[in-house]
Write a protein that binds this DNA or RNA. Structure first.
Length: 583
RNA sequence: GGUUCGGUAGUUCAGUUUGGUUAGAAUACGUGCCUGUCACGCACGGGGUCGCGGGUUCGAGUCCCGUCCGGACCGCCA
């Protein structure tokens, strides 16, 4: 008795066919004379029916089954006398004439249903059971589809999928590396790749022209809902291209995925300079599903005797449409929100443009109604709108105002999961000053090429140099980023110089790449997408964990297999390692 | 490294503010009844080291200190 059908495909059309199905017992409903079993597999649920009058022996046997037992059943597809139109197979049932227990099950620690009663930790520990639930099953099927269609699109564009090594070399800058001790070379370590960056550049030098790889990457940093220590990138690189070529090719990929997987047609992605994104949204990954752009107010609010503003480097606000009726309590809650340590604003000023045309603010002492109306004009505010203003040091204030804008977007329901607003953020700065170390770091990575127009600035004002670097942002999520690389050794050396990387260090860490650049490296550039984030975005969720079959928890632990874990003294000895500190 | 929320039945939670009888609910589990259920229904039943350690008290799930574990976030993540 071989399986002839899955549990999702039998319908009224199969009536009176003899079939064999297999799966897990989802639920047993024992009505006395009748017993029903919902049999579940990856494809769906099919009802098995047992009748005490027809076959009492088999019916008794069915009643001994437990949840999650694995069985195989043979019987006849029959139209139900009372139908369940909520499921595709709901018009039929299988009148079972014979079944077999393939395996028993312990009672599962949580219910395996659409909405489980299990908590996060328990579900992680029994991930293989959680994955039986429809929501997670759908997520992994979605992931498969996205990976499949990505390969489809890139293959049609002549990209080759080429694997790069996982045991590689630790690199300076960037995230912490995961390292692997070498047994054969005592005292030496491999590093796991944070990305296949160097290798894909080498493949361009090898002449492969268009490369991609759906590949695991590793970063030893603290986790978030959207950050795992091992994650998957769609890593891509192209030769003989300029920025526009890369942007167009991969805008095409994302549009293709939306069309194929969600049947959504996206318009051309707007391109926004980094400086504009920071000025209007206070973020390099703006959520442009809604407006509420920043308006800078230094010119209208300074010099009226309000010390906080007079002493502020930067004053800016947002206008929340129709919120002038916010109560004192709501405004206090917003003030508390921006004063949370994670956001760190000192306070918040509001201006209410009331329905009756009057203007009231939390700083009426210092500003006349005319002053405040001038502010309202800057926002093109209408009667009924609420203006929220923060001030202080520019970067901090922008960040806080960005959080406030997103919070208001949430409160006003402007961040709908079913709406997708993609854009390119371009013209990132090449370098980023680090006050602690008193040196520049690469904003993207040290192989990113500078704007040709800004090359003179590299000597005079490095902080102002723009890079040929770009991010794709959808709904405030950075889904991908890349750059046109440096393909010239002199330029690469110059950038290392700006980054304070000595010749010796550069030679030690990237000697292979610097050497390769001298053997006819073509101009090239590329992009890497966070595949897990793309999956969660398509699935309408904030957390990438629900789209990874076996994710790690907040402390980078796999609680199911209980890893990381100590290794034996023999293993340590073989690796020439000694543990000097335990927690 | 920091902020914050949480840990009570197999599970999800209430109870902690204001210390006081035998720690409850739902669900899951077990037994019985039930011929059209599909979250079946009804009845009965078993099930607890209140995370752990210490302290205050006549008395601690409840208050204090410490610690462990988990979630979200900040720092960090080229």
């Amino acid at each position: 008795m071989h399986r002839t059908h899955n549990c999702g495909e039998l319908t009224i059309k199969n009536t009176s066919e003899k079939v064999t199905v297999a799966g897990w017992v989802q639920r047993i409903r024992n009505l006395g004379g009748l017993t029903f079993i919902d049999l579940r597999d990856r494809y769906g649920i099919t009802q098995l029916a047992f009748n005490m009058e027809v076959n009492p022996e088999l019916c008794e046997k069915a009643r001994e089954l437990g949840r999650e037992f694995v069985i195989k059943a043979h019987g006849t597809v029959t139209e139900r006398s009372s139908k369940n139109l909520n499921i595709p197979t709901g018009e039929i049932e299988i009148i079972v004439d014979n079944f077999q227990i393939l395996n028993k099950s312990l009672i599962p620690p949580f219910t395996i249903e659409e909405n489980t009663d299990g908590g996060d930790e328990l579900r992680m520990k029994y991930r293989y059971l959680d994955l039986r639930r429809p929501p997670l099953r759908k997520n992994l099927i979605l992931r498969h589809k996205l990976a499949f269609e990505t390969r489809n699109y890139l293959n049609n564009c002549d990209f080759l999928e080429i694997e790069t090594p996982v045991l590689i070399k630790s690199t300076p800058e960037g995230a912490r590396d995961y390292v692997v001790p070498s047994r054969i070379s005592p005292g030496e370590f491999y590093a796991l790749p944070q990305s296949p960056q160097s290798f894909k550049q080498l493949l361009m030098i090898s002449g492969f022209d268009k490369y991609f790889q759906i590949v695991k990457c590793f970063r030893d940093e603290d986790l978030r809902a959207d950050r795992q220590p091992e994650f998957t990138q769609i890593d891509c690189e192209m030769s003989f291209v300029e920025q526009d070529d890369v942007l167009n090719t991969f805008e095409g990929l994302i549009k293709y995925l939306f069309k194929e997987v969600k049947n959504i047609e996206l318009n051309e992605f707007p391109r926004m300079a980094y400086s504009e994104a920071m000025a209007k949204y206070g973020s390099d990954k703006p959520d442009i599903r809604f407006g509420m752009q920043f308006v800078e107010l230094n010119d209208v609010l300074k010099g009226k005797g309000f010390q906080v503003f007079d002493n502020a480097e930067y004053i800016a606000g947002i206008c929340a449409e129709g919120c002038a009726n916010y109560s004192r309590k709501q405004l206090d809650a917003l003030t508390d929100f921006v004063r949370k340590p994670q956001i760190g604003a000192k306070g918040m000023v509001y201006i209410k443009y009331n329905e009756d045309g009057s203007v009231r603010s939390s700083v009426d002492k210092f500003y006349t109604e005319d002053d405040l109306k001038k502010v309202a004009e800057k926002f093109n505010a209408k009667a009924g709108d609420l203006i929220l203003i923060l001030s202080g040091e520019t970067d901090h204030t922008r960040k806080a105002l960005c959080e406030l804008r997103l919070e208001m977007g949430n409160q006003l329901g402007l961040r709908n999961h079913d709406v997708y607003a993609p854009l390119w953020v371009v013209d990132f700065p090449l370098l980023e000053w680090n006050e602690e170390d008193k040196r520049f770091y690469a904003k993207h990575h040290p192989f990113t090429s500078p704007h040709i127009a800004d090359i003179d600035l590299m000597d005079t004002n490095p902080a102002e140099v723009r890079a040929n670097a770009y991010d794709m942002v959808i709904n405030g999520v950075e889904v991908g980023g890349g750059s046109i690389r440096i393909h010239d050794k002199q330029m690469q050396n110059k950038v290392f110089e700006l980054l304070g990387i000595s010749n010796e260090e550069a030679e030690e860490k990237f000697g292979f790449l610097l050497k390769a650049l001298q053997y006819g490296a073509p101009p090239h550039g590329g992009i890497a997408f966070g595949f897990d984030r793309i999956c969660s975005l398509f699935g309408g969720s904030e957390s990438i964990r629900d789209f990874i079959a076996f994710p790690k928890n907040n402390n980078a632990r796999d609680v199911m297999i209980d890893s990381p874990s100590p290794i034996s003294d023999e293993q340590l000895k073989e690796l020439n390692l000694k543990i000097i500190a335990n927690k």
